[in-house]
Simulated scan of single mutants.
Amino acid sequence: MEAATSASRVPAVVHPAVMSDPWFMLAVLGVYLYFVTVVGPQFMEFRKAYKLKKLIMAHNLIQVVSCLYVLKEVFFITDNAVQYFWECRDFGKSQEHVRRHFELAHFLFWLKLSELIETVIFVLRRKQNQVSKLHIFHHITTVTLVYVLLHFNENGTAAYFCVFLNSIVHICMYTYYFVAAVADKDFVRSLRPIKKCITVMQMTQFAFILTQVVFQLVLCGIPAFALCYYTGVIAAMFYGFYDFYQTSYQKNKRHKSLTTPN
Rank of each mutant, 00 (worst) to 15 (best):
F85K: 00
L111I: 12
V120W: 01
R89C: 03
L26Y: 12
L124P: 02
Y84V: 13
P41N: 10
E73S: 07
H135E: 04
T37M: 05
D79L: 07
V70P: 02
D79I: 09
L26P: 05
K51D: 12
H106M: 14
Y69S: 08
E96K: 11
P41A: 06
Q95K: 13
L26E: 13
I117W: 05
Y32V: 01
E115F: 08
F46C: 15
I62V: 15
L26S: 09
K54F: 14
F122E: 01
Y32R: 02
M25A: 10
A58G: 15
R47V: 10
A81K: 08
V64N: 15
V131R: 00
L108I: 05
V120Q: 02
K54H: 13
H101D: 09
A105Y: 02
I117E: 06
L116Q: 04
A81G: 12
K54N: 15
L113F: 13
V120T: 04
K133E: 15
A27E: 14
L68S: 10
Q128H: 11
V70S: 07
D90V: 11
G40F: 00
T78K: 07
F107Q: 05
G40S: 04
V31S: 04
Q42T: 15
F75E: 05
R89L: 03
K51A: 08
Y69C: 06
R99K: 15
E87G: 04
H59W: 11
H135I: 05
T119P: 01
T37R: 09
I56H: 05
Y84T: 09
T119F: 00
V98P: 00
C67F: 05
L71K: 01
L134P: 01
Q63W: 13
V131N: 00
Y50P: 03
G30H: 09
V65G: 12
V131G: 00
V38F: 12
A105K: 04
E73G: 02
Y69H: 11
S132H: 03
F109D: 03
L124T: 03
Y69F: 11
K54C: 15
F75C: 08
Q42A: 12
F76L: 09
I117M: 14
V39E: 10
V64Q: 10
E103Y: 14
F107I: 01
V39F: 12
H59G: 07
K72R: 11
K51N: 12
S132R: 04
F107L: 09
Y34W: 12
Y84D: 10
R100P: 01
S114C: 10
M57D: 13
N80T: 09
L52Y: 03
E103F: 14
V39S: 10
A58N: 15
F75L: 11
K133S: 14
A81M: 11
K53N: 14
